[in-house]
Design a protein around this nucleic acid. Structure first.
Lengths: 241, 241
DNA sequence: GTCTATACTTTGATAGAC
DNA sequence: GTCTATCAAAGTATAGAC
């Protein structure tokens, strides 16, 4: 290691700026100051994305919330999409993994369905608002992300990234559908409905909570999950016969 | 001396352009050509809004789909928000009115709940994609609509309009909650859950269909409504005891 | 690490000729 | 009725000084 690259004049030469390299270096280093500020930035971004959505949020708003200048963000992140990704990716992955673990685990289909509902509501609460950011966006739509600026993030990369997120949503749906099908097969569930329709209904019921659920609200995530589970399994109509 | 290019002759004077006045005049006139082209524009706008969302859609895209120049749109509409409003407003109003009519009508609470579910799914199909455009947007978020251009639509007016749309969503929720409460009171529904939670769940189940429902798809809106109604009233768990 | 200044892009909207 | 030309605003991202 050596840093003899100062100009031979002895003067402090012009700094090689290239924030892209400095960003990568800092990311590798993972110094304590870097990590702390990066964490604060992620929190601010989560708030703003929650309030305004991916499109509606501007880096200006996020920078202001984080107490930084807009340009400073680029020391920590590569682009707006990169920032959004950093905020939601882990939590979404964890969630899909968790549901797939439930599907592959022990228990009846009905039990697993209940577990899945509780799991998701729990995650909404624990990881608020990160998971909601993902649920609120409809990545199935094309061209939603509008690219501006002198060097917009590479279109192909952005498209790849969107496709990945769509895939995660699909994986979640697929796992839940399997759970329902298993329940119908093992006799713990009984319905004329297709597993796919049930899965859509359950996911809708739970996902829609991003429009009204507040962590400090009257009902806890667990109570809501209990309620939805009872509704789906037992129904709310009076028993006939 | 005198500028020979100066049009000081008795020739036809400069036209008073003012497209705003001409737009209002044409709207009053309602000539057949105007109505036909306006209708085509609304159809194109509905398509693009469906694909890209309110924010993601650009007037350029909409104009292209309608086979017009971007500037020509302003002969028919006042602003982007005005266009979106024209596309969704009637259908959303009709829907809220229909649900309130169900609430005020005859029948048990359980019957009314079933009616409401069928009504909404039917409307999704019949008015596709207009009602979906509304459901897909989250007007509860602030500052989502980004205003650009030399003279952005008056911020106050846009805010008013957003508040109105939020109000329509609230009215829908409120009506459905009443229906559930009535069912619990008249004995046609039986549950420990709060009417509000049930209403949220049902609305979520149905509204989420904007992410997956296709009018040409395997299941019709009526079949889906039948399925969701059965799921909510009877449940899909095996009967105990 | 952070900021000022600025390049470049896209958009919504107008003016005014035809 | 429609179009060309253009505007002002807001955005993303970069360069480079400190």
């Amino acid at each position: 290691m050596c840093d003899p690259l100062s100009p031979t004049t002895g003067r402090t030469g012009p700094v090689a700026s290239d924030i892209s390299r400095r960003r990568k270096a800092a990311a590798q280093e993972q110094g304590p100051l870097y990590m702390e500020r990066r964490g604060r930035l992620m929190g601010a971004a989560a708030d703003i994305f929650r309030e305004q959505g991916l499109d509606g949020a501007s880096l200006n708003d996020i920078a202001k919330r984080a107490g930084l200048d807009r340009a400073t963000l680029y020391y920590y992140i590569e682009s707006k999409e990169d920032l959004y990704r950093a905020v939601v990716e882990d939590v979404v992955h964890d969630n899909v993994n968790a549901v797939e673990k439930v599907r592959n685990g022990e228990g009846s289909g009905a039990d697993k369905l209940s577990q899945a509902i509780h799991l998701l509501m729990d995650s909404y609460e624990k990881n608020y608002p990160h998971l909601f950011l993902f649920v609120a966006e409809d990545f199935g739509r094309r061209g939603q992300v509008r690219r501006q600026g002198r060097k917009p993030a590479a279109a192909a990369a952005v498209e790849d990234w969107r496709t990945q997120l769509v895939g995660l949503g699909d994986a979640y749906y697929s796992a839940l559908k399997s759970v329902v099908a298993e329940g119908l097969a093992d006799g713990s569930l009984s319905s004329q409905l297709s597993p796919g329709l049930v899965a859509h209904g359950v996911i809708g019921m739970v996902s829609w909570s991003h429009r009204w659920f507040k962590p400090e609200g009257r009902a806890s995530a667990e109570e809501i999950a209990d309620g939805f589970t009872a509704m789906v399994l037992d129904g709310i109509g009076v028993r006939r016969g």
